[in-house]
Design a protein around this nucleic acid. Structure first.
Length: 420
RNA sequence: GUGGAUGUAGCUCACGUUGGUUAGAGCACCUGGUUGUGGCCCAGGAGGCCGUGGGUUCAAUUCCCAUCAUUCACCCCA
């Protein structure tokens, strides 16, 4: 029986991993430009953390979590809860009342894999705790927009507000009344949703349901004064920065902790997986997890697999080629290989990247390897060279360049620095 | 959990007429064409229990059943 990777778990192989590095490096650069600091948190947490943060009745907690058989420990299905736990546990808000954090890493959900969705997937996570300013909402959205623009991928922004515990209940009632008037015409899923989470009826994908719900009351009209002001300020902020967006009264959130601003960056190029990044405010969450009362928070997650798919489709050329090698040393014969091995050690200590192999291949075969590894220079050490103490240096980029002889020591290669 | 599609070489895929003896291509790999010089070209080579198990048959990669895997979609979500 051959051992294979688990369903929904994928290797990221050389050739593709370069794209991930570009994504990560670009993201880190943008995050730093926005004055965010990295935090690294464990992938395994107490189950109760997620039950409390995400909501006991959500699909994620009910059936998608990787929970150990003792039921007490769970592989994180998302990042926000862990980051908040850490911030609270380590008292970071006492040291600095506004925390601007990012984290990058794998998440785990036991669902059926499909395009852009795996059981182990990766997210770029941004979280800010301690500020309720709408300017911050705008800033976070602009950060995401900038990252997408840096990566050369096209997504569109949708915006909504979910209100707060003050105004949402009234809206919920109004929506429920609207739903119940036509409940028997809705799909069976929505009939169920109307019981469990009426807001989710809004983003049903069944065309007939969409028509039925087209005139549903909009939460945007039910916001309390504070939420309304906040929502307006976010929109004005985006307009000030020239970031286009579309209001979408049907966009709701799957996770319980969201309030006020919610946003999604979506694409039509990933099949059923439209959301590339999504997030919003969660002003009550920190307190719920035992943090200081009234600590506001906002954050979002970007799906890295989905971004990678878009990068692969984008017109921008990310050059998935192998990292070029400074020098490839071709050692011929037993003595040549030993000398190559010694010289490689010296050259690497001097900072060169050096390739070689010990399979006793012909010079021709080694030249081919050097070429494939994208080496800039090849240094040949055979019996003749051992006899004279000088090896042959060949320029692989310029076929016509003359070969030169160099002593078999790293000092002889100093001038190469300028040519690489 | 539900539904559809697909499983043939490392990868991308053909062919296999209503079953029949040696299952092919491209890319990649190895060797040679240059007793020690890469990319291009040419020649050669290696590499497959035709996903797995069972059934029908003299004979199954081909037909039937089951099973597993992959994938897309539903659900849900990044």
């Amino acid at each position: 029986m051959k051992i294979k990777a688990l369903k929904g778990f994928k290797d990221i192989l050389p050739g593709e991993v370069e794209l991930w590095q570009i994504l990560e490096n670009t993201a880190r650069t943008v995050f730093e430009q926005y004055n965010f600091h990295e935090i690294r948190v464990p992938v395994l947490e107490e189950t109760a953390l997620f039950q409390r943060a995400i909501g006991d009745t959500t699909d994620i907690v009910e059936k998608e979590m990787y929970t150990f058989v003792d039921k007490k420990q769970t592989l994180r299905p998302e990042g926000t809860a862990s980051v908040l736990r850490s911030v609270i546990e380590n008292g970071l808000l006492v040291q600095k009342p506004v925390q601007r954090l990012f984290t990058i890493g794998p998440m785990f959900r036991h669902e059926r894999p499909q395009k852009g969705r795996l059981r182990q997937f990766h997210q770029l996570d941004i979280e800010v705790l301690g500020s309720k300013s709408p300017l911050l909402d705008t800033e976070l959205i602009s950060l995401a927009a900038m990252l997408f623009s840096e990566l050369g991928i096209h997504v569109s922004l949708e915006l909504n507000s979910l209100g707060c515990p003050k105004c949402r209940p009234a809206y919920r009632e109004a929506l429920l009344a609207f739903i119940n008037e036509r409940k028997d015409k809705l799909c069976s899923d929505c009939q169920r949703r109307s019981e469990t989470n009426p807001l989710r009826v809004l983003d049903c994908k069944v065309p007939a349901d969409r028509e039925l719900m087209a005139d549903a009351p909009s939460i945007q009209e039910w916001l309390c004064e504070e939420c309304g002001d906040h929502f307006n300020a976010v929109q004005q902020g985006l307009e000030r920065l020239g970031i286009p967006f579309r209001l979408n009264k049907f966009m709701v959130r799957g996770l319980d902790y969201y309030c006020r601003t919610t946003f999604e960056f979506i694409t039509s190029d990933l099949g059923a997986q439209a959301a590339v990044a999504a997030g919003g405010r969660y002003d009550g969450l920190a307190e719920l997890l035992g943090g200081p009362a009234g600590t506001p928070g906002i954050g979002f997650a970007m799906g890295m697999e989905r971004i990678i798919l878009l990068m692969q489709q984008s017109e921008k050329d990310f050059q998935e080629s192998v990292e070029p090698l400074d020098i490839y040393i071709a050692g011929l014969g037993d003595k040549g290989q030993k000398e190559a091995s010694r010289l490689a050690w010296e050259l690497r200590q001097d900072g060169f990247s050096v390739g070689l192999d010990y399979e006793g291949r012909s010079l021709k075969a080694q030249m081919k390897l050097a070429n494939r590894e994208n080496a800039s220079f090849v240094f040949i050490i055979g019996d003749e060279e051992l006899a004279t103490g000088k090896g042959v240096l060949r320029n692989m980029r310029d076929r016509d360049a003359e070969q030169m002889e160099l002593e078999l020591k790293a000092e002889a290669f100093y001038f190469l620095d300028d040519l690489l």
